[in-house]
């Protein structure tokens, strides 16, 4: 136990890095993903095509490849992120946005057609029926899948460890070397760090799921 106490500042900093990485990229992914989802159901074919292309591209590419591209590839088109943390945020956000879009789209599709038809019959246009009728209901049905995307994102942040971000997994690698005799404790501490993020999230999601469920 004294080992954990000694290394507490390290563990805390690594945990906060992981948490902030997840939160910042989660917010960016939510914004971008919502935009993509709106594009995917929009009347303009070009927008639909663009959004579909984006989703298919990122759905079939490993996140590690996205990381490599942003860290060491885009320099060849004279682009560069100011820090490794922001590179990781960008990679996670771009990748996750595709899945946020998928979750939202399945949510929009889960809203019964009658709702949209009724909205249209009342004379609401595309924007109005989307923002006042369909999306509010869709957001309720997508809370569980979106929450799960958030949990997956929190775990995916671990890949940033391979790209010079000092997160929990990087700490695991560091301590597994320098404190090899305490390896079990190192794993416990790091896994606990992730569980502190994922378990309460899962709990909140299940509560929200019950609260927001629409009785039909």
């Amino acid at each position: 136990m004294s080992f954990l106490a000694e290394n507490f500042p390290l563990i805390r900093d690594a945990f906060l890095t992981t948490l902030s990485l997840a939160v910042v990229s989660g917010i960016c992914a939510l914004l971008l993903g919502t935009l993509l989802a709106a594009m995917r159901v929009s009347p303009v074919p070009a927008l639909r095509g663009l959004a579909t292309f984006y989703v298919e591209l990122f759905r079939n590419t490993p996140l590690t490849v996205v990381f490599f591209f942003l860290a060491f590839g885009i320099v060849y088109i004279d682009l560069q992120f100011p820090s490794r943390f922001l590179t990781a945020v960008a990679a996670l956000a771009l990748y996750t946005a595709a899945f946020v879009c998928e979750a939202l789209r399945s949510g929009i599709n889960a809203v019964p057609a009658g709702q949209a038809e009724a909205a249209r019959a009342l004379g609401l246009d595309f924007r109005q029926s989307l923002t006042t009728v369909v999306l509010p209901q869709a957001f309720r049905t997508v809370v569980p899948p979106l929450g799960n995307v958030w949990i997956a994102l929190a775990k995916n942040t671990s890949i940033a460890a391979g790209f010079a971000v000092a997160d929990l997994t990087a700490l695991l690698q560091r301590l597994s070397n320098s404190a090899a005799d305490e390896l079990a404790l190192v794993f416990v501490a790091v896994v606990a760090g992730y569980l502190v993020i994922t378990l309460p999230s899962a709990y909140v999601i299940s509560v929200l799921e019950r609260r927001l469920a629409i009785v039909r």
Partner: peptide, 9 residues
């Protein structure tokens, strides 16, 4: 689909 350890609890 996200992989990388994704998945709900």
């Amino acid at each position: 689909q996200m992989g990388g350890g994704g998945g709900p609890l």
